[in-house]
Design a protein around this nucleic acid. Structure first.
Length: 502
RNA sequence: GCCGCCUUAGCUCACCCGGUUAGAGCGCUAGAUUGUGGAUCUAGAGGUACCCUGUUCAAGUCAGGGAGGCGGUACCA
C-alpha cells in the first residue's frame, strides 16, 4: 500500500534581519567601495582580510558592560568543542591579528579592511544582522597625528564617493574631557561605585541630537518616558551636577579653537580633562595646517560613542543634508561612521599597552544616502547584448557571434531558453538589454544581421499607439553585414556612453 | 530587552455580524499578430488565508501561544 508521504517543503525566505542584494545595488556598492579603498590606499593603508569566524574568547568584550555581558554575537561550537563566533566588527579581529603577528609587523601598523560583520540582535530601521563595514586603523602610535589623519581620511572618503563638502561633517570629542567633566561633578573614574552612574551620564549625553536638551536633562535626573510608554531610568544627578553637565554639552557651535577654550574652562584643573583638551588642540592644529576647515571637521561635546573601549579622541561622521522620504517627511541620514582612539585593545592578548586609533564606516547606510543623492553608479547593471535564437539548428552560428562580441569586450549572451521570438525579445527587454542581434533565414540568405536598439525602440513606442504601425516600422533597427557584427554593435552602444543609466 | 501596529495570489490590497466554490488591479503565460519587446482586446495559470492550539454545528474572520515584518524605545562593539 502506497502511503501518502508528506514531503517537507521548506518555506523559501531569507532569515530575519538579512537580505538579498540585487545586481544594481551590488554593482553600485562595489563602485562606492572601490572609491573608498582608493582613498585608503592613497593614505598608505594596506588591505587586510581576516576570517569571518574567530574563537569566541578572542572576541570577548574589552571592558565589562554591566547591562549585557555577552549578547549580540552569533556563536557555535565546532567538533573540538571550541567556541567560535562570527565577527561582530573588524576591530576585535584586528587586535587578535596584531597580537598574533606582533613581532613580524612593522610598527606603527596600518591596515584597512572591508567586509561583512554579523550581529545577533533585533533588526531595526536601517539595521540588519549582517552588514558591511570599512575600517582603517593605525596600531602602535600615541601620536595625535594618527587621529587627525583619521578625520582627514573620512572627509576625503566622503568626497571621493560624491558627497560634497557641507553635506557631511566629522564631529570630534575626547573621552578624557568627558572623564574630566565627570570628575568635576564628583564621579571619579577610579571609584567602582560610580561606574553605572557614569555610563548612564555618558549615554544621556550621547542622545543630545535625538532627544534635545530637555530629554538629556531628564535622563541625567530621574529618568524619561518615551512615546511608546517605555521608561528609561535616569542617572539621578543633583540639579547642580545636571547644570554642570549641561553647560558642557552646550559648548561647541564655534570655531574649533574656541570650543577648546570653553572646554578648558569647564574641566578646570581636572588633570585628565586638561589632557583631553590639549589633545584636541593638537588635532586642531594638524587639521588646520592640512587645510581641513570648520566646514569639514568640528569639535562637538555631544559625541560619546561606544562605552567599551575608547580612551581618547572619538569621532563620528554625519551626513547633514536632508532628503524627502517616501512618506513626504524630511529625513536625515545622520551618522554613517565613527571611530576613536582605543589604547587598551591589544593589551588583552599581549599584556602590553598598544596605542591604536581607527575609524569605521557603515556601508549600507552610506550607500542609501548616496542613492538619495542620486550619486550611485550602477552602470554595468545594464543587461548584456542578447543574440536571439531564430533557428535552433543554427545555434553554433549564434554562439560564434556571442564569442566574437565577448572577445571584443562587449558583454553579451546567447538566448538559452526555448521560447519563440516574441518571448525572446521580452526576455531581452526584461534583462535591460540595450541591443538584440537577430539572424533569421532572411538575413542569413543575404549575409546580414539585424541589430535592434531596444532603448531607442522603447523611446519611440511612446508616440505609437497602433500596433500595426509599431510592428511594421520595426523601430530602431539597422541591418549590417555579418562581418560587421562587432563594429555595428559597438557603434550602437556608443550612443549611450556616459549615459548608461538611461 | 520593552511597547504598539501588521501578516490573504509573484506584487498592492478587498472579503460587512463567523456561514456555499476566498476576489480585484497590476504582473505572469498564451492567442489575436507566419519573424519583433510597448499599447489594445481575449483566454489561462497561480491560494496550506504565516504556524500551532483552542472555542464553535461551522474559523481567513473569535481567543491563546509562536514565528516573521514594520515602527518607537533601549543597546550599539
Amino acid at each position: 500500500m502506497a502511503k501518502k508521504i508528506k514531503t517537507f517543503r521548506p518555506k523559501p525566505r531569507v532569515p530575519k534581519g538579512l537580505r538579498d542584494e540585487m545586481a544594481a545595488d551590488v554593482i553600485g556598492q562595489r563602485k562606492m567601495l572601490a572609491a573608498i579603498a582608493h582613498v585608503y590606499e592613497l593614505y598608505g593603508f594596506d588591505p587586510l582580510e581576516t576570517s569571518g569566524l574567530e574563537y569566541s574568547d578572542a572576541m570577548g568584550k574589552f571592558l565589562p558592560d554591566a547591562d549585557r555581558p555577552n549578547q549580540g554575537v552569533f556563536s557555535f561550537q565546532d567538533d573540538d568543542d571550541q567556541w567560535l563566533s562570527l565577527r561582530y566588527d573588524l576591530t576585535a579581529p584586528l587586535a587578535r591579528f596584531v597580537a598574533e603577528n606582533y613581532d613580524a609587523l612593522p610598527k606603527p601598523f596600518r591596515r584597512y579592511q572591508m567586509g561583512p560583520v554579523w550581529r545577533n540582535e533585533k533588526p531595526g530601521p536601517g539595521r540588519y544582522r549582517q552588514f558591511t563595514q570599512v575600517d582603517a586603523d593605525t596600531v602602535g602610535t600615541p601620536s595625535m597625528a594618527a587621529d587627525a589623519e583619521m578625520c582627514m581620511l573620512m572627509c576625503d572618503a566622503m568626497e571621493a564617493i560624491g558627497i560634497e563638502r557641507g553635506d557631511y561633517e566629522v564631529k570630534v570629542n575626547n573621552r578624557k574631557i568627558l572623564d574630566g567633566v565627570l570628575e568635576r561633578i564628583g564621579l571619579n573614574l577610579e571609584d567602582p561605585d560610580n561606574q553605572v552612574q557614569r555610563l548612564t551620564v555618558l549615554r544621556a549625553i550621547d542622545k543630545l541630537d535625538r532627544l534635545g536638551e530637555e530629554g538629556v536633562e531628564r535622563l541625567l535626573g530621574e529618568g524619561r518616558k518615551d512615546e511608546s510608554g517605555d521608561y528609561t531610568e535616569g542617572a539621578k544627578l543633583s540639579p547642580e551636577q545636571i547644570n554642570a553637565v549641561m553647560s558642557f554639552v552646550r559648548a561647541g557651535n564655534e570655531a574649533r579653537s574656541a570650543v577648546c577654550d570653553q572646554l578648558a574652562a569647564i574641566v578646570g584643573e581636572s588633570e585628565i580633562g586638561g589632557e583631553g583638551v590639549s589633545e584636541l588642540r593638537e588635532i586642531d592644529t594638524l587639521l588646520s595646517a592640512a587645510g581641513y576647515g570648520a566646514d569639514q571637521v568640528v569639535f562637538d561635546p555631544g559625541i560619546v560613542r561606544g562605552l567599551e573601549y575608547y580612551t581618547g579622541p572619538v569621532w563620528e561622521i554625519d551626513l547633514t543634508f536632508e532628503t524627502i522620504g517616501e512618506d513626504d517627511t524630511l529625513a536625515r541620514f545622520g551618522s554613517v561612521g565613527s571611530g576613536g582612539r582605543y589604547d587598551g585593545l591589544v593589551e588583552r592578548f599581549k599584556g602590553v599597552r598598544v596605542p591604536a586609533t581607527g575609524c569605521s564606516i557603515g556601508v549600507s547606510r552610506l550607500y542609501a544616502a548616496l542613492k538619495a543623492l542620486g550619486k550611485t553608479d550602477e552602470s554595468g547593471a545594464r543587461g548584456p547584448v542578447v543574440v536571439l535564437v531564430m533557428d535552433a539548428s543554427e545555434t553554433a552560428g549564434y554562439q560564434t557571434m556571442v564569442q566574437e562580441l565577448r572577445k571584443s569586450g562587449i558583454r553579451s549572451e546567447l538566448y538559452l531558453g526555448g521560447s519563440g521570438m516574441k518571448a525572446q525579445l521580452k526576455y531581452a527587454d526584461r534583462r535591460g538589454a540595450s541591443i538584440v542581434v537577430i539572424e533569421g533565414e532572411d538575413e542569413r540568405e543575404k549575409g546580414e544581421l539585424t541589430l535592434k536598439d531596444l532603448i531607442l525602440g522603447s523611446e519611440m513606442s511612446k508616440d505609437i499607439e497602433d500596433n500595426k504601425a509599431w510592428r511594421e516600422d520595426q523601430p530602431a533597427q539597422v541591418s549590417v553585414k555579418r562581418a560587421d557584427l562587432v563594429s555595428g554593435v559597438r557603434s550602437l552602444l556608443d550612443r549611450y556612453k556616459g549615459n548608461e543609466n538611461l
